[in-house]
Computed example of a mutant assay.
Amino acid sequence: MTSRLPLFPLGSVLFPGLVLPLTIFEERYRALARDLLALPEDAPRRFGVVAIRDGQEVAPTGPGIPDGGAAAGFGPDPARAFYEVGCVADTASLREKDDGGYELMATGTTRFRLLSVDATGPYLMGEVEFLEETAGPGAGPLGAEVERAFRTYQKQLAGARERTLSAAQELPDDPAVLSYLVAAATVVEVPVRQRLLEAADAASRLREELKLLRLETAVIGKLPSLPATELTRQPTSHN
């Protein structure tokens, strides 16, 4: 079964359970915000977040480019500009600012596979199929290993940043929730985050994270300090 969702492309990856703050100022996304606000109070105000593939932010223009695709800013076939798997964002709060923009707060809920993109309207619409969440074999023991590795990684990263960790963070027991939290909190590039989002199940994601955390911890441990750009790179969350 498929569904249609408004799309909000970002240069970052949204994971289920994670909060997404957005400052909206581009006209096409203002139109989306207005339509979300116009929905009945009891209606879900959902949209799909898809990560933009590297190098696809600027669309070609000129003869032969369909108006819809060019207007959307992602070329004649917008679907090619995005990764195939995204995440539904459920709007928690949305308000208009004095300058006509919007402040939006949403939470990631469900992963989806992007089947096609319609660029004929004021903003992109996607035909999507929702992806089932499964634990996978060995998710529980893997979760315990990842938690230990993640705490070691945090300590090593805090040392590289020349600061100390505050009180130990409580981590969720649910393997799927843990896998998404670790994926979001690990300092890695968008393609790596996307690979974690696309993992078939929680166990596969945790297994990948265990390798990643051990590698990143080893790399940080060999460096006297990390470049500021590496330590502060975070997903941008506004358009």
Rank of each mutant, 00 (worst) to 15 (best):
60 P>Q: 06
34 R>K: 14
11 G>Y: 08
43 A>C: 13
69 G>V: 07
192 V>E: 09
211 K>Y: 14
14 L>C: 08
94 L>H: 02
231 L>E: 06
45 R>E: 01
150 F>H: 03
60 P>C: 09
104 L>N: 00
6 P>G: 00
171 L>F: 08
185 A>L: 13
154 Q>F: 03
63 P>R: 06
79 A>T: 05
108 G>I: 04
40 P>R: 01
164 T>C: 10
81 A>S: 12
227 P>W: 06
64 G>I: 10
82 F>L: 01
186 T>F: 04
63 P>Y: 04
115 L>D: 13
47 F>A: 04
62 G>M: 03
160 A>K: 15
67 D>E: 15
25 F>A: 14
231 L>I: 09
87 C>R: 00
41 E>K: 14
47 F>G: 03
144 A>W: 11
39 L>F: 07
69 G>N: 03
136 G>Y: 01
180 Y>C: 14
61 T>M: 09
195 R>F: 12
238 H>G: 14
40 P>K: 00
86 G>I: 00
128 V>K: 05
65 I>D: 02
177 V>H: 08
65 I>H: 03
224 P>T: 00
126 G>R: 01
83 Y>Q: 04
28 R>G: 10
170 E>L: 13
18 L>E: 12
236 T>D: 15
199 A>T: 03
171 L>C: 06
38 A>L: 12
232 T>G: 09
225 S>P: 05
197 L>R: 02
86 G>V: 00
77 D>Q: 14
107 T>Q: 11
197 L>P: 01
181 L>K: 11
31 A>D: 14
62 G>I: 02
163 R>M: 15
121 G>Y: 06
169 Q>S: 14
40 P>V: 00
9 P>A: 05
152 T>M: 11
183 A>L: 02
93 S>L: 09
129 E>K: 15
120 T>V: 08
149 A>M: 02
146 V>E: 00
31 A>I: 06
28 R>H: 12
180 Y>V: 01
72 A>V: 05
32 L>G: 08
73 G>I: 00
231 L>W: 09
71 A>M: 14
104 L>C: 03
155 K>T: 11
163 R>G: 04
55 G>N: 06
180 Y>H: 15
59 A>I: 07
23 T>L: 14
218 A>H: 13
62 G>R: 07
26 E>Y: 10
39 L>A: 13
56 Q>Y: 13
